[in-house]
Design a protein around this nucleic acid. Structure first.
Lengths: 226, 226
DNA sequence: GTATTATGAATGAACG
DNA sequence: CGTTCATTCATAATAC
């Protein structure tokens, strides 16, 4: 079942300085549908959270654990090898905080700073100072590499004027290499709003300005009730 | 009840052969971002629903089996492909060249080398330096792993444990190394079960049709693993 | 269609 | 700090 306006191929060539930039094209209706879907999800999530809160006031969830109780499917024959995760993985909340700190630009977290951050983050999950230190090291290095890559093969900035400037955590240099995967893993999923809307912008191909798809303040935050 | 936000007019006139078609324009990157955001919501919703079910039924969590039941009204519609590519796939020709270079033993793909190779390969299909870099990384890593596995197979008797290998080099005594949340608080609650309640009808009161503009199989699939 | 495998990409940690 | 390694995840390709 599909929307009425049809066009199998909806790529359109758009000229920029360097040649052809491929963009996706949506109709108004499709956009509206999309917007609604997101809004619905947002609302549902909030309601479910609310529901959950009500329920948990009477019941503690200490027992809830996603154990590897079922053993490791990969090691069935080997038997007693319980694979423990050996590398730290930041929870979404931790990541969010880290990113925020990183974005504040104070590039070099001092020793003391690391300690503080670690303390704060440890409230949201297991973490060590080493983890924090490494994270900043990696974050900086990769950010820089991306920047270099971007400037080297792209002299022209067509979409720029983005909200973010110094950190560009999502600026994707190549148009055909659009991975940039910050895909949330389900194990790390939690209730926090996945940071919707603020960074989403449409490209105005005529004025070279960007504008947000949705109004930033009311946009995807229905929040009321179903 | 419909999320209430008024969208200022952001139409753009775009010429096509048949006249003026009003469309929205997104870059690949923007589309990808959007898609991920929705996916996050979808996953969160599933987890919340699951949690809610667990709580309301006072069910012992150890016994919760997850069915691969997909009942996502938002995602199951047949969409058309808006977003095409997600990951680079080398053409046979490119692969051939890459393998040849790899076999030459100069296991060190220097930065400049990468550039050259990329340039060469781009004549046979779309490719970026990152792709080349990743390819060599992966190629080397997997080659090495195979080697290790092969030699350890010699020992026999013990059934293969796969991940475990006599690689002491990296073993660093990390005192605070660990992952799993030992104290789940409500914000961090995570569930692995991809089971979605069949009787959730998200869109019912918003629209009658449940269509998605995204292909159901290309990324909005909320659950991590099938 | 569904399950499995191969492999591109992301990333925490280590090295120099 | 920049680079590299090791591990993990998601998905294209493929088998069933």
């Amino acid at each position: 079942e599909k929307p009425q306006q049809e066009e199998p191929e909806r790529r359109e060539a758009q000229q920029n300085g360097n040649g052809v930039l491929y963009v996706k094209v949506m109709t108004d209706e499709q956009l509206e549908t999309l917007r609604k879907q997101i809004a619905v999800y947002a609302t549902i999530c909030e309601q479910l959270v609310e529901m959950h809160k009500n329920l948990t006031t009477q019941q503690d969830l200490a027992g809830v654990r996603l154990g590897n109780l079922y053993c490791d499917p990969l090691m069935t024959s080997a038997g007693h090898k319980i694979s423990a995760r050996q590398r730290w993985t930041p929870t979404p909340l931790q990541l969010q905080i880290l990113e925020r700190i990183f974005d504040q630009g104070n590039g070099t977290p001092s020793k003391q700073k690391i300690k503080d951050i670690t303390t704060e983050l440890s409230q949201h999950g297991q973490i060590s100072e080493t983890n924090v230190y490494n994270w900043f090291q990696n974050r900086r290095a990769r950010s820089k590499r991306k920047q270099l890559n971007a400037t080297s093969n792209n002299a022209e900035s067509e979409v720029e004027t983005e909200v973010e400037s110094p950190k560009d955590k999502k600026t994707k240099p190549e148009e055909f290499q659009s991975q940039e995967n910050s895909t949330p893993r389900s194990e790390e999923m939690c209730f926090h709003s996945p940071d919707l809307s603020p960074d989403l912008h449409f490209l105005d191909q005529h004025t070279n300005k960007t504008e947000s798809i949705f109004p930033s303040n009311s946009g995807l935050r229905p929040a009321r009730n179903l």
